[in-house]
């Protein structure tokens, strides 16, 4: 039996790396007597897979993992049961059973929503929302936004313009575009004042980190990009209803693309 879990990760838990989050959940499932299935063999492990886990330091209201269950007698009570074993900074927000033929969420991931906020001890000029919106519009009006993208193996210049599906300093505008509702978040918006919201291509083939957009915006503003000055907070992850494994369909591109939040994607 397959199930998908959506959870938030904030505060001090931002500094817990992905492997440790996995270990955290393994223990939480045992504490909560969640009947997660085990692999066979001499050292059995729980069957779980995470969707595009966050890097250290980032926070999120929408992390996803798929798990395999032996049984699931009361799916309605699962969120509550799991939260009894969670700490305050990792909370389960959603639990849904998947059909047996459901594709793994990582394979279907097509886009993510992010909030980029200021850090308490790094007040930047982007706090002037009016100015930032103008800068952002200026940036988005360009046909090409070239940025140096570093991976473990290589470094190359890419054009990320078409991968920015939406970017705005206005939450309302962003919500209208994405269909999300981001007024109440697990990140403290007084301490981390919002700068902008964005929706970017994500997935195993092309993955655009919000840091790249911020870097481009800094260039536009003529200031140096300081990665430590911004808090990045993930708001949602989407699957592409028409997506195929190993292919990237851009939103509003030639191939059809329909983004659906992973918590509603079956």
């Amino acid at each position: 039996m397959k199930a998908r879990i959506k959870f938030s990760k904030t505060g001090s838990m931002r500094f817990i790396g992905h492997l440790d989050v996995m270990r955290y959940f393994q223990k939480a499932f045992r504490r909560g007597h969640i009947p997660v299935s085990y692999s066979q063999g001499y050292s059995p492990h729980q069957l779980m897979s995470f969707t595009s886990p966050l890097g250290i330091g980032l926070s999120s209201d929408a992390e996803y993992m798929d798990i395999e269950l032996d049984e699931c007698p009361e799916p309605e009570s699962m969120v509550e049961r799991m939260n009894q074993t969670m700490n305050e900074e990792i909370r389960v927000k959603d639990f849904l059973l998947l059909p047996e033929d459901a594709k793994p969420s990582m394979a279907m991931l097509a886009a993510c929503d992010y909030l980029i906020a200021g850090k308490p001890d790094h007040m930047s000029q982007f706090q002037d929302i009016g100015k930032t919106q103008k800068l952002l519009e200026g940036l988005l009006s360009q046909e090409e936004i070239l940025i140096r993208k570093k991976t473990k193996r290589s470094e190359k210049v890419v054009n990320i313009r078409l991968n920015i599906y939406c970017a705005s300093t206005s939450r309302e505008v962003f919500e209208r575009h994405t269909g999300g509702s981001y007024a109440s978040l697990s990140i403290d918006q007084k301490e981390y004042p919002p700068i902008l919201y964005c929706q970017l291509t994500a997935g195993s083939v092309v993955n655009i980190k919000p840091e790249l957009l911020m870097e481009a915006l800094c260039r536009e503003a003529g200031i140096e990009y300081d990665p430590l000055a911004y808090q990045i907070h993930r708001l949602e992850m989407y699957g592409d209803q028409y997506g195929k494994k190993g292919e990237v369909h851009l939103l509003n591109g030639e191939a059809p693309c329909l983004l659906v939040p992973l918590s509603k994607y079956r």
């Binding site: 904030t10 505060g11 001090s12 500094f15 250290i56 330091g57 305050e88 900074e89 850090k119 001890d121 403290d188 301490e191 430590l228 808090q231």
Partner: peptide, 13 residues
Amino acid sequence: MRKLALRDEILLK
């Protein structure tokens, strides 16, 4: 939110 003794940028370094 829980207070931390170390700033984010130290924790990230």
